[in-house]
Amino acid sequence: MANENKSLGMVAAMPQEIAPVLARIKGYARGNIDGRNLYRFPVNGSCVYLIESGMGPAQAAAATRALIRHAEPDAIINFGFGGAVLPGLEVGELVLAERVFRLDQGALSELPLPDPALATLLQEHCAKVGLQLRRGGYITASGIRNKAEMASRLGGSTALPLLEMETAAVLEQAQGAGIPLVAIRGVSDAADEELGFSIEEFCDGNLNLVPWRVAWTISKRPWLIPQLIRLSGNCRRAGKRLALAVELALQALTRQSQP
């Protein structure tokens, strides 16, 4: 049974991650909090708040703090795209965060585990409709990192590692506020594809995309165009599956009688 008083929060970095989810939602309202897009909509009598954080740990942490202050959610879903570090994950597959690591100034540290009960609930709920969520380890970095180097550092200690840029920061804020969190990501690039650019080349100091920087980088290195086109297609493919998983996650969480 839905809990009429329940509030759920969601954090995602980019419009490309959010748009496929909103396409499956009817009747959302768009607002703004601390200069960030905030979307609000009902699911089974509960109120869901989705904030667009922007890329990188600093942006994700600030957005999560704003979300917690504004919505006081009973649980938080973090979702987005990620790059596979080791073979075993294909583009479009979905990965639940079982472990979360932070890569900061070359040092790799592990955070306390995301909520295992929520992860199990979502995995089982998605399995009922034939949607597989695999479990893996997220590595949150402040930019694009070399996958071969990450694989070497992990040494096989983590199943299905995925490189991304926000989850550790969102998790830290959620756990600091005593809020359970579950994270879902879709694979946008396989382990055998090293991205040929750095995020700093496309962004300002706050990791906001700057169109002229993108155009300038491509004009100087036109061989990036095929990779960017392929990555865009991969994100569309992963985004559709990710949006379905997020919708199912919302259904599962809002049908619980307890947070």
Rank of each mutant, 00 (worst) to 15 (best):
residue 241 R to S: 14
residue 187 V to G: 08
residue 184 I to P: 07
residue 182 V to Y: 10
residue 185 R to Q: 03
residue 235 C to A: 12
residue 252 A to N: 02
residue 250 L to D: 04
residue 207 L to Q: 14
residue 207 L to G: 02
residue 208 N to C: 09
residue 194 E to T: 05
residue 249 A to Y: 02
residue 211 P to D: 09
residue 222 P to G: 08
residue 237 R to E: 07
residue 227 Q to S: 07
residue 215 A to S: 11
residue 228 L to F: 11
residue 213 R to N: 13
residue 242 L to Y: 05
residue 246 V to Y: 11
residue 240 K to G: 02
residue 209 L to P: 06
residue 207 L to R: 14
residue 236 R to Q: 15
residue 185 R to H: 06
residue 210 V to K: 13
residue 232 S to N: 12
residue 191 A to F: 15
residue 232 S to G: 13
residue 235 C to I: 07
residue 247 E to L: 07
residue 206 N to Q: 15
residue 230 R to M: 12
residue 224 L to R: 08
residue 216 W to M: 03
residue 231 L to S: 09
residue 222 P to V: 04
residue 224 L to V: 04
residue 219 S to V: 05
residue 228 L to H: 04
residue 225 I to A: 13
residue 184 I to N: 08
residue 191 A to Y: 15
residue 240 K to E: 13
residue 227 Q to W: 11
residue 188 S to N: 04
residue 256 Q to L: 09
residue 198 S to G: 10
residue 255 R to V: 00
residue 246 V to T: 05
residue 182 V to M: 06
residue 184 I to H: 09
residue 201 E to V: 00
residue 211 P to T: 02
residue 195 L to E: 02
residue 231 L to E: 11
residue 201 E to S: 12
residue 241 R to M: 07
residue 239 G to C: 09
residue 249 A to G: 13
residue 252 A to W: 00
residue 237 R to S: 06
residue 246 V to H: 08
residue 224 L to F: 15
residue 199 I to P: 03
residue 190 A to N: 05
residue 199 I to H: 12
residue 235 C to N: 12
residue 240 K to W: 05
residue 212 W to N: 08
residue 223 W to A: 13
residue 207 L to P: 02
residue 182 V to D: 06
residue 234 N to D: 13
residue 228 L to R: 01
residue 231 L to I: 05
residue 184 I to Y: 14
residue 182 V to K: 02
residue 208 N to P: 03
residue 203 C to I: 02
residue 245 A to L: 03
residue 244 L to G: 00
residue 208 N to E: 12
residue 202 F to P: 01
residue 230 R to I: 04
residue 245 A to W: 04
residue 212 W to I: 01
residue 248 L to R: 00
residue 210 V to G: 08
residue 236 R to Y: 12
residue 222 P to A: 11
residue 221 R to D: 07
residue 241 R to L: 11
residue 243 A to C: 10
residue 212 W to M: 04
residue 228 L to M: 15
residue 240 K to Y: 07
residue 243 A to I: 02
residue 210 V to T: 07
residue 240 K to M: 05
residue 230 R to S: 08
residue 208 N to H: 11
residue 207 L to V: 00
residue 210 V to N: 10
residue 242 L to M: 11
residue 211 P to K: 02
residue 214 V to M: 10
residue 211 P to I: 00
residue 245 A to M: 03
residue 253 L to G: 02
residue 192 D to K: 04
residue 256 Q to H: 01
residue 225 I to L: 15
residue 189 D to E: 14
residue 195 L to Q: 03
residue 187 V to D: 13
residue 198 S to K: 14
residue 209 L to E: 07
residue 218 I to W: 15
residue 214 V to D: 08
residue 184 I to A: 06
residue 199 I to L: 15
residue 255 R to N: 03
residue 202 F to R: 01
residue 233 G to V: 02
residue 199 I to R: 10
residue 256 Q to V: 00
residue 218 I to H: 14
residue 239 G to Q: 06
residue 242 L to A: 02
residue 198 S to Y: 14
residue 197 F to H: 10
residue 226 P to M: 06
